[in-house]
Design a binder for these strands. Structure first.
Lengths: 138, 138
DNA sequence: CTTGACCTTCTAGTGACTGGAACCTTTATG
DNA sequence: CATAAAGGTTCCAGTCACTAGAAGGTCAAG
């Protein structure tokens, strides 16, 4: 199967697939004309990669997961450990973003959004308290 | 003020501050010996940057916000617009991550974490249903 | 035979830094 | 006064995971 068909099937840009070959995540065969030739197994691997990357696993995580995936003798505990670590990271990220969102929406809520130059958002970003006075600056 | 002191004060690595100068976000003076010399205003700008970046604004967002911040005549509506767009982006990200977390924790929950080679996590990542059978593969 | 859609490789750019080398200046200490 | 350390400077290269674009080869349809 040529790269474009694979690309459509697994939902990854052709460029990305070539890149994955470059870094050794897939190694498609080559046809006589030099075109990459992907087997069903390669497509399966790429589907795996697309999904894992979509779930936020880093490429190096993916490499590890792929190795486990292809290793018939691996312990599912290893996989579970990686997944759990990753889950913890995601949850941390979510918490961080929620913090951000809360701060930002506080700032937005305090902002009249009119033509006056006083803007609580900028004041907030500048580290001031969200009041109009500037006298307490350090 | 020398770069290290600024670095400590605003909580940005010296390298980052130099980088911000390179891309034109701050332009500290220079002492006779060639050292960067930061005024209180520069420190204030960097504090602003640290905070805005910490809230996830891109450097280009920051450039825009800085311009608004320094523009006495700007409309607070402009700032509000940027902040709201950003807030929307953050909320999208959170939703995406929550999706991920849900999928992953489903997978983790389904995984015995023992020594058997069947692993629902890998099966899930491979796009299979989380059952032990492989017969329904496309 | 030509057109257009593919394919190939290669180089370079992105964002937002970060690390390291090579060298200069200031300050404290023996 | 010599020296060592702790700071400063510039510049080049690397990170991550692609992405863009150029220059050229190949293939199927009309």
């Amino acid at each position: 199967m040529n790269i474009k068909d694979v690309s459509v099937r697994v939902g990854l840009p052709a460029k990305t697939i070539r890149y994955y070959e470059e870094i050794g995540l897939v190694t498609p065969d080559r046809a006589a004309n030099g075109y990459r030739d992907f087997s069903a197994a390669h497509v399966h691997t790429l589907t795996f990669l697309a999904r894992a990357r979509g779930l936020g696993f880093s490429v190096e995580d993916c490499r590890e997961l792929l190795a486990l995936w292809e290793d018939q003798g691996r312990e599912s505990a290893d996989v579970r450990t990686i997944a759990q670590q990753h889950l913890a990271q995601i949850e941390e990220k979510i918490a961080g973003l929620q913090d951000m969102a809360a701060t930002l929406s506080d700032l937005v809520r305090g902002c009249a959004g009119d033509a006056r130059p006083e803007c609580p958002i900028l004041q907030g970003l500048a580290g001031e308290t969200a009041q109009t006075s500037c006298e307490k600056l350090p």
